[in-house]
Design a protein around this nucleic acid. Structure first.
Lengths: 177, 177
DNA sequence: TCATATATGTCAACGTGGCTGACCTGAAAC
DNA sequence: GTTTCAGGTCAGCCACGTTGACATATATGA
């Protein structure tokens, strides 16, 4: 699976197609974020803040160092973001019981609200694209993106080995959201 | 197509799945760029420089204002990048024949070489993901990404209006690779 | 020919979100 | 109990975006 001789590469691996894919990623990512940025700006926040809010919302009680691993930035950079969010009373910090050095982060109601607003915006953009493309395309989308992820996080998105299957055409109905 | 009642949304539009898609996009984009960044750093360049090199390479003779539209940054920002690249002799500028205000940008051999190196790195990352995912998944990947793109650029990636789905086995190459 | 619009450049000031380095502090280990 | 160290902060720097004001050359139409 690793390397194929050029002549035997399937067509979708031609340089032209790969370039197209790269541009697609560039433009799509740019536009995916553009709309939510406006909501953020209205709240005096940047993308960095949103990422922190998002992951804290997803993992209530997460510690700073865990968050650091997710975001892959330096603790100093994150510290600033956490400071901002605390000042705006969007998150709270409380020391761990077992190890009081650790600070566990959670969203305040206000933080949760902002997170919801911003994320909802992004989700709407993605949902539109998903809907237009259809379930099958979404499956492919996820598969390729998961393949782009290196290191630890990859596991979180690869059905086989790790998480339970999550195939595109899985169980119908129930919990339809 | 805009809105479906919650109860009728297909499963892949559930909030959880959309959140997963967003994270996927975040991690994938981050890792997609990470490797190429190192090559760039070795050449004393940043992402901004690469983007300019890339598009100049793709559109030799492109003018500054056309480049501006592609990158969606201000002329002041681009001006700095162009200045850097010119100083490093990676691009050349020459006035237009018909309209001598315009400056047409092209890569120098040196610029082309750097662009090739960096882009090749990214292409390799993408190619690996493509290969693992397979042709069909790649089709879905493109379809969803194209749907995320708004405005002008969208057209560049939607083959025939209705998006006749760009099946893997289309045009038989020439310049293949 | 003159007026206006266009393409580009430059200077200055600033914001976000990365970075490194120095340092503080609570918990643990010797 | 002094040292070690992980977790976190403070200070300052850099890349790369932004706005705003203004300069200049050129094209174009009245």
């Amino acid at each position: 699976m690793a390397d194929l001789k050029p002549g035997f590469n399937p067509l979708f691996l031609r340089e032209e197609d790969l370039r197209e894919g790269m541009e697609l990623l560039f433009f799509a990512y740019r536009d995916f974020l553009a709309e939510a940025d406006q909501v953020l700006a209205r709240n005096g926040l940047g993308r960095a803040h949103h990422r922190a809010l998002y992951f804290i919302g997803r993992h209530p009680g997460i510690t700073v160092s865990e968050l650091l691993k997710l975001l892959r930035i330096t603790k100093q950079s994150l510290s600033r973001v956490i400071g901002d969010l605390t000042a705006k009373e969007m998150i709270t910090q409380k020391p761990g019981l077992r190890d009081r050095r650790r600070r566990h982060l959670t969203l305040t109601p206000r933080g949760a609200e902002v997170e919801r607003d911003v994320t909802a915006r992004q989700r709407a953009v993605l949902a539109r694209a998903y809907r237009q493309a259809g379930a099958e395309a979404v499956g492919g989308f996820r598969k390729v993106l998961a393949g782009l992820i290196g290191g630890e996080e990859r596991k979180r998105f690869t059905p086989e080995t790790g998480t339970p299957p999550r195939r595109p055409g899985r169980v119908p109905a129930s919990g339809g959201r």
